[in-house]
């Protein structure tokens, strides 16, 4: 038995003539929670649908566990999916919604009901079994969708932006529950989202996608500390990483000479405001609780964002000085790829 939960090899997909996935190669180990992160239109949902079998792969192969499922219809892949809209049957009770897949496979009624009750208990919607989806809140519906996905004990979970429809507070809470659930069940999971915080918190590994291609696949730490491309660097992190031309006004001390067209990047947390360094004008300051985010303008017109403690923050319109350490700086070449200097 291999340790592969899901493998995509050279998978391409198209929609109405346009290619939306370009020969994607991706491996997910068994029991891993992979988050596919990217902006809208990146092809994340398409990827999920191709894995599920709802959309055909033009090229490449899809493997789930040991099986090559590329030519199998969705029902045969032993995959469960939670849709963004939850896709609950409006005319069935919660219990019947959960047991739907079991009943279709001719599971005896009593067995199906027991398993439904168990799954509902795990996700915390056991008290809703006799209600209809129309009577539930967004969070409750999401739990039912999860229970329905779990009850079949599939080889693979696919979650399509499951938290997008929830409000902020619920989102945070549910995030934690999802993680706990994954640890408990240990099923290989592919979780799609555009929220980078969600990705960083939940994932065992993150796959960043843009325009139908994978930009980088790595642990959250790797994504954060060593972004492989300019896109990844700026996508993960809020406010986004500051990126400036290498030959701009702000230079980290100890920076060697860089090739022409290179760019440097550093996160807002890496900027020190103090007595030395480059002159900058404070254009705007956003205060969020204990943190302040100051937006500074450099001499050449470039802007950077800086994270400071709220107390002692500079006033708007004043001129301050800031520096960045070379150790905190990332270098990208002309094409946007990470450059490691020897």
């Amino acid at each position: 038995m291999s340790g592969i939960g899901l493998e995509l090899a050279g998978v391409s997909a198209a929609y109405r003539g346009t290619t939306v996935l370009h020969e994607v190669d991706l491996t997910v180990t068994r029991g891993e929670l992979l988050v596919v992160l990217g902006p809208s239109g990146a092809g994340k949902s398409t990827l999920l649908r191709v894995v599920a079998g709802l959309q055909p792969a033009i090229t490449g192969r899809v493997r789930i566990g040991d099986r090559d499922v590329t030519t199998l219809r969705p029902g045969r892949r032993n995959v469960s999916m939670v849709f963004q809209s939850y896709a609950l049957f409006p005319h069935l009770t919660v219990r019947d919604n959960i047991t739907f897949g079991l009943e279709v496979r001719d599971t005896p009624r009593a067995v199906a009901r027991d398993r439904a009750a168990a799954a509902a208990a795990v996700v915390g919607c056991a008290h809703l079994l006799d209600r209809r989806p129309g009577q539930l809140s967004g969070g409750e519906r999401q739990r039912v969708a999860l229970a329905r996905a779990m009850v079949r004990e599939p080889d693979l979970f696919l979650l399509d932006e499951p938290l997008s429809n929830l409000d902020q507070e619920l989102r945070t809470e549910t995030r934690g529950e999802l993680k706990a659930l994954h640890l408990r069940l240990g099923v290989t999971t592919v979780h799609v989202t555009h929220d980078q915080t969600e990705a960083l918190v939940l994932a065992d590994r993150i796959a960043v996608m843009r325009a139908g291609r994978l930009e980088q696949v790595g642990t959250p730490d790797q994504i954060w500390r060593t972004p492989a491309t300019l896109f990844v660097a700026r996508f993960v992190g809020s406010p986004p990483m500051n990126v400036l031309p290498a030959d701009g006004p702000l230079r980290p001390a100890g920076m060697p000479v860089l090739p022409a067209g290179a760019r440097i990047g550093f996160r807002p947390e890496a900027v020190r405001v103090g007595q030395d360094g480059t002159d900058v004008t404070v254009e705007r300051v956003d205060v969020v609780g204990e943190d302040a985010y100051a937006y500074l303008r450099l001499a050449g017109g470039d802007r950077i964002a800086v994270r400071l403690p709220a107390a002692g923050r500079p006033a708007v319109g004043t001129t301050v000085r800031c520096t960045v350490a070379w150790a905190d700086t990332h270098v990208f070449d002309e094409a946007g790829h990470r450059t490691v200097l020897g």
């Binding site: 709802l54 969705p74 892949r77 849709f83 896709a87 739907f100």
Partner: peptide, 9 residues
């Protein structure tokens, strides 16, 4: 809903 049904075979 129909896609889900397809997934449930």
């Amino acid at each position: 809903v129909y896609e889900l049904a397809a997934l449930e075979d």
